[in-house]
Amino acid sequence: MTPILAVARRELAAALESPTAWIATAAFVAALHGLFFVVGYPIGQLQLPPFWAGGTASLAVAFAWIPPLLVGLAPALAMSAWAEERRSGTEELLLAWPIRSGEAVIAKFLAGWALLALLIVVAIAPLALVVASLGDLDWGATLTGIAGAIVLGGACLSIGHLVSALAREQLEAFLIGSLTLGALWALGLAIGNLPAPAAALAHLFSPAAHYLDGAAVGLLDLRDGVYFALLTAAALRVTYLAVEGRRSR
Rank of each mutant, 00 (worst) to 15 (best):
M1K: 14
P3Q: 06
V7H: 06
V7P: 00
R9L: 07
A15C: 07
A24C: 11
T25L: 14
A26M: 02
F28K: 00
A31G: 05
L32T: 09
L32P: 03
L35S: 03
L35H: 01
F37D: 06
V38K: 13
L46V: 15
P50Y: 10
W52G: 07
G55E: 12
A57M: 09
A60K: 05
A62F: 11
F63Q: 01
L73Y: 07
A74S: 12
A76P: 07
A76T: 15
L77T: 07
A81D: 00
A83L: 02
S88A: 13
S88E: 15
E92F: 10
L93G: 11
L93N: 07
W97E: 15
P98D: 03
R100Y: 10
G102M: 08
E103Q: 15
I106R: 04
A107L: 00
A107R: 00
W113N: 01
A114F: 12
L116N: 04
L116D: 00
A117N: 13
L119R: 03
A123W: 02
A123G: 09
I124M: 06
A125R: 06
P126D: 12
A128P: 01
L129I: 13
L129P: 03
V131I: 14
A132N: 06
D138E: 11
D138I: 10
G140K: 13
T142H: 09
L143H: 02
I146D: 08
A149T: 04
A155Y: 08
H161V: 04
H161F: 11
L162E: 00
L162H: 00
V163N: 08
S164E: 03
S164C: 02
S164A: 08
R168D: 05
E172D: 11
G177A: 08
S178P: 00
L179I: 14
L179K: 05
G182Q: 05
G182C: 10
W185S: 03
W185C: 00
W185A: 03
A186D: 08
L187Q: 07
L187N: 10
G192K: 02
G192H: 06
G192F: 12
P195W: 05
P195Q: 01
P197K: 13
A198Q: 12
A198W: 10
A198H: 04
A199K: 05
L201F: 15
A209W: 10
L212R: 11
L212W: 09
D213L: 08
L219I: 15
L220N: 11
L220S: 12
L220V: 13
L220T: 11
L220M: 15
Y227L: 14
L231A: 15
L231H: 11
A234P: 11
A234F: 10
R237D: 04
L241R: 13
E244Y: 08
G245H: 12
R246D: 09
R246V: 13
R247Q: 13
R247M: 12
R249M: 10
R249A: 13
